[in-house]
Design a protein around this nucleic acid. Structure first.
Lengths: 343, 343
DNA sequence: GGTCGTCTCGTAAACGTTTACGAAAGTTGT
DNA sequence: ACAACTTTCGTAAACGTTTACGAGACGACC
């Protein structure tokens, strides 16, 4: 069923049918109604290839995720919930969402080249943003509008939304300092992902505010995964001069840290206080419940949808590129206790 | 950069360029080389809309998932790993994969109508298959090839791949019977999802083989989620005549069961033996480690890719619709012990 | 040299849509 | 009654490909 068959069936021209279906002005109300009625009756839906060929736009947003990455192996439901909320918003605006999985073994630049050249999406949302991100330079050269989840230091004409890693780290330091901790370790990612830099900056700022000297041996880099958390827990618990608090920039490492502590006979909270990053249903099953930060994933997903569609607006003021930092709220937990008298 | 510009740059016709790029016969080797060289130099990639409009095929496979569903909230990495392997295979065959998220609040039939009519994919992979699945009837009517992950009783011309839920349940019964258990409870999903029926069938078959009468009060239906598992654990632990073994048709409920047992003072293994479904990295953090079944997710993903592309083969023998059951292998765990002397 | 076949390539139509343009009909104003 | 404007619609071109068809060049063969 194409538009010509529909037009013939109504004995009018395809031009009029198209105008009616697209709510273009200058079509008689009576005709409009007839067309709409016939379209639903005959189950007509515009062919996407024909439409986007003519319009040069596909009404589709691409969401680029890295797969095969340890963080995803960890059973992280983060993207599922965010994508769902984003998809909901986009569907309201008559946009489709496709998820473009780039395997971590692939060359992300080549992957993007294909996506760009094939013209399958009108705009992209990038994730796993790096501090120096070659994909951003590449996208900036192409004319494809895009935004990133996570800041980058690579310049380019794009919008971004980032979680307030710096604020979370700073607040985490404040919370443990308030309880009397002075020897505070931190687990950071072992790659160039941007959040690591912001988390570290907040950590350093918090220490400085409390007048605590930086001890480089307490800054530990591990993969963002359960295994990485396990390694982190082993390292921290095995230190000659054990820290009394441990801050985590990712919640997926928390389970690993707890497991390592269990093996090493270290009790979270009593021996070493823990502040995790994002609150997560998984944490129901960690004992004692880790202190963490709450993030509204639905709101984040909707905001992503709004931001990416803004890029496509003809209104210059709306489509202006901008950055946004999403705050998180502190959630106390049993894993947070004053340091033991002995320490 | 379109094909005309490329042709003009080479001073040959667009027809020849297209033939060269698509490896069609009848183009001079020298010309072929020139075209390929110029294409890479100028970064030419065929526009997808133009190509699929002409060819009537998009070289894209759609993967339909339900989002907003409690099972996904549970931090299940199942789809991530499977999708990744599938994507890898499809990319080798020059096919793209798009994930089509259907929100559980949406009408899945309407969602599919749009997908079908817009002609955005050449074939579909469906998940969360129901025993009676209206989507299958709908897809069968449309001419869009599709396959399902999970069997359905709804007839239609399609291929399917299913995990061996029946075999797993039967084996689970055998394992606990071998240890002396006679009072065996089972947790089933509370909706019409097909796997529940097969798991129950295997459970009943196992009981029959062991000569154990069916006790309907031991067949408990809960949502497939951590909360559902929690409820299941509470119910089982609170029974007047406690069962000595509990079989789970889904691993996401396991954590909830453990948590409920902890609250009720029931010790997994010693008081009630547990057999979970699929082995899962999360289980590293459950104590005692649950007995479960191992599934090669990579192999499953590749197999899905092969099966869905087979649907599109011009070779009738290859494209013949077929079903396939994937076996899982038993993994012993500390959660499996003989019943206590008292029972 | 004429006929035939093969190799290579150019021409043009087709896929399904949107939209600029102009034509026809109707309305208003003088 | 005529001009000018508005409303409504039909016509045809365009988007970027692929491919059926035919034409030209060339060699082989009788």
């Amino acid at each position: 069923m194409n538009i010509r068959r529909l037009a013939d069936h109504l004995n009018i021209s395809i031009g009029t049918v198209s105008r009616a279906l697209n709510n273009r002005p200058g079509v008689h109300p009576e005709t409009l109604e007839k067309v709409l009625k016939a379209a639903t009756e005959l189950g007509y839906v515009a062919n996407q290839s024909g439409r986007s060929l003519r319009r040069g736009a596909t009404n589709t947003i691409g969401f680029v995720i890295e797969t095969g990455h340890p963080a995803h192996q960890a059973g992280d439901q983060f993207f599922y919930v965010v994508l769902d909320a984003m998809n909901l918003y986009l569907a309201e605006q008559r946009y489709d969402l496709v998820i473009l999985p780039c395997h971590s073994a692939d060359d992300p630049v080549e992957f993007l080249s294909r996506v760009i050249a094939r013209g399958i999406v009108d705009a992209l949302v990038m994730t796993a943003t790096r501090r120096i991100d070659h994909r951003i330079a590449q996208l900036a050269k192409s004319k494809l509008p895009f935004m990133t989840l996570g800041r980058s230091e690579t310049p380019g004409n794009y919008s971004w939304i980032d979680l307030d890693f710096e604020g979370v780290a700073r607040r985490s330091v404040q919370e443990v300092v308030k309880l009397g901790h002075r020897r505070i370790a931190v687990g950071l990612p072992d790659n160039d992902v941007a959040l690591g830099y912001h988390y570290k900056a907040g950590y350093l700022k918090g220490l400085a505010e409390a007048g605590i000297a930086v001890d480089e041996s307490l800054i530990i880099r591990v993969p963002t995964s359960e295994m990485g958390g396990f390694s982190l827990g082993k390292q921290v618990a095995g230190m000659a001069e054990q820290p009394t608090a441990l801050l985590l920039c990712s919640e997926v490492t928390a389970a690993g840290v707890y497991a390592a502590f269990g093996e090493m006979g270290v009790e979270a909270g009593r021996d070493i206080s823990i502040v995790a990053f994002r609150e997560n249903p998984l944490m129901r099953f960690l004992n004692p419940a880790p202190a963490c930060f709450r993030l509204d994933l639905d709101a984040l997903g909707t905001r992503l949808g709004e931001t990416v569609l803004d890029l496509l607006s003809p209104d210059e003021e709306v489509s202006r590129r901008r950055g946004e930092i999403v705050p998180l709220s502190f959630v106390p937990g049993k894993s947070l206790q004053p340091p033991r008298a002995g320490s």
